[in-house]
Nucleic acid binder design. Sequence first.
DNA 1: TTACCTGGCTCG
DNA 2: GTACGAGCCAGGTAAT
Length: 879
Amino acid sequence: MGEPTGAIYGVINMMRKINQDYQADYVACIFDAKGKTFRDDLYPDYKGHRPPMPDDLALQIEPIHKAISAMGWPVIAKPGVEADDIIATLAEIATQNDVNTIISTGDKDIAQLVNGHVSIVNTMTNETLDVEGVKSKFGVLPEQIIDYLMLIGDSVDNVPGVPKVGPKTAVKWLNEYGSLDNLVENADKIKGVVGNNLRENIPNFALTRQLITIKRDCEIDDFFSDMSDLARKPQDPETLREIFDHFGFRTWLRELTGDAQAVPQQDARVAHDIPETPETVDYVTVDTPELLEDCLKQIQAASLVALDTETTSLDPMMASLVGTSMSIHPGQGWYIPLAHKGNMLAQQLDKTMVLEKLRPWLEDDSAAKVLQNAKYDTHVFANEGIKLKGIQDDTMLMAYVLESHRSVGMQDLAQRYLGRKGVDYTDLCGKGARQIGFDEVDIEKASFYACEDTDFTLQLAGLMHPLVVAEEGLDRIYRLEMWVSEVLAKIERNGVKINEKALQQQSHEIGQKLVELENKAYELAGQPFNLNSPKQLAEILFERMQLPVIRKTPKGAPSTDEEVLTKLAQDYPLPATLLEYRGLAKLKSTYTDKLPKMINPRTGRVHTNYAQAAVITGRLASSDPNLQNIPVRTEEGRKVRTAFVPEKGGVIMSADYSQIELRVMAHVSDDASLQLAFAQGKDIHRATASEVFGVPLEEVSAEQRRAAKAINFGLIYGMGAFGLASNLGITRDAAQSYIDRYFERYPGVATYMNLTRAKANEQGYVETVFGRRLWLPEIKGAKGPRKAAAERAAINAPMQGTAADLIKMAMVAVQEWIEKEGLKTMIIMQVHDELVLEVPQDEVDLVKSRLPELMCGVAELKVPLVAEVGMGPNWEQAH
DNA sequence: TTACCTGGCTCG
DNA sequence: GTACGAGCCAGGTAAT
């Protein structure tokens, strides 16, 4: 099915404009389909670089064709044309029909406005045809067919705030909306235009999106500026909705997608009624003492209040409160501006005064509040010396528990659950380098935005909460996530002490080594080049030095990654040098240089951010800085860990679950042999080797154990013989026989994998032991490699997800215990299966004995959980 | 100059 | 095409 986004966008605009201002007589619908008809004789440089024409080209054309037909206009749809053909076709239409206006689609390559006069440019051949040129080539003067050229699509392309959409976003859209129909239902959300490169990446997007209108009897400047204006305002949702309805787009597309509709939803999602959009809203800016009193009185009396903060920074530890908003009814909201800059200061109540008035309510555990990502606001209030309490619900976490694979951003939730499109943060503050702080935003605009946020939050909570509690498993996971959110806020705030000097010293040493390696590389290469550039490196290795190309990247460039360099290093000296350089450069730029810069000047510690709703399996993700990927596998890398230190008089303690995912596999697969091995406390890889290779436990060789370990890990990831073979450097047949033997010895595992695959295919999701639901949108519908990938994810998800559930429960248990005992011990990091704590000396014995008990006692699986504890003067030595 | 993408590398 | 899940960095390039 043709991808309508960009094209529809252009068509809508075109139709609106035509309908309103320009009475078109004729619409030419001409598609630049490339592919088979591409004229190699004309464009030799492009030979071989063109994708084949998609088989369903006609289908792709149909949407636009029908759209235009629906207007009652005649249409010429003609695929497989190039610049010259388009011009010729236009000429044909113009001469054969007595027309005033022609609307055409085409490619921007073919036309260009030059000095208010039309010329025709073919950017592929660089051939420019002026008036005479057109005449001689086509036998008709351009004035006869055109007065003005306008590229609607192109204008939209270049409008600030309307992003150009690349293949990733386009695919994301398709996945997100599931079907063309859905996409259209959400048309007012579509912002952007499909870019040229889509054609090469996704055949379905081959539909060209530019629309050229050709207009007679109109001042060219006016027309151009009108069109530009139009293109700049396409995101107005109401207007778009109107246009859609007016032209019957929904009906039209439903007809078109009749087949698609018959296919069941790919990611069946929770059903709910989208509420009516309210006619008006009651949003109040609280800027007088009277209004403040009124607001206070009402929030104190309310049973549930949606709360939100506006701040100066996305970094929660650095953010300063600019304003706060509350809602107690749908369509209603208060915004209390507190720190908007400049001449807006006079329009605000005193920040300190307001916060003191709010404090009792904010800190009241019995005053129920609902927030979107409460962890952030907890930090913001903490920065102002306020302990936010009474967090009853978190809409972000509800959304995450319901559908962890989809966006949990406020805007997306509002769209999905409320059918509303709110003001986007970037609409207010811009983005990137030109982004302004929220304290620079007009109070009036800020107020609407902030009130809308809490308004949405309250409504979302009302809609999502019943969906969550309706399912026992989801409810349990949601309550866990609420606890985890609170614990994470504490861990983030605790931060971790970094030995800045040690890292600087390491940076210095690495820097010197890098210079040496660089010079050595230049010598071996016979010329200087940028060692950090894969592109330049590929030129040196594969062109200049003529080394064999081992593998290519997805884009077709010769790969220079570790695997390739390692192989080349067997025969040549340069790759080995590069490998060493790469490792050290990564170490320096990402860790030894970066971490000291991340130290918070106020606390003197590094505060990571744990994203609780980012990973589809339920894991956490750490960022800014990411403390979950600090090096450990190499000697030099581990040095970085020695810089993670306790305050004076304390130690670093680390506790990690042993073989957590394999234990989960033993549990869920119910495989007797695997469970027995764990029950007997065996070295699991050795036990596996013994089974697979048929040797007694004590006779397992190091090589056999290594292979067994690879098998064990591979199985967790849903690996096949190909993967295992390349991992172990053995033949595919040998790898297959290992796998076969494994499944013979552990038949429960084989059964479990087949069942999981079947279950995922049938219901579209899999579950963890504790009821976390993990959707696999691509398991239905998709085919070939994509479906296979979804099936592998389905195998892995219950194991990774259950492990995530377990450590989350452990975090809550440990933090509760610490608080109950009134200890000074702090959890400072979580690394998926490991908890890192900073423990004062006098609490060491207590924590060391209790920590593993707590971690292993969070759940009773069919195999024992084991946690290994270590401690030391730094993280490295705590293992 | 900025914003996005690619290739590569770090972790569990 | 080929093993799951993440985040971050430097270089390269397209758009401004």
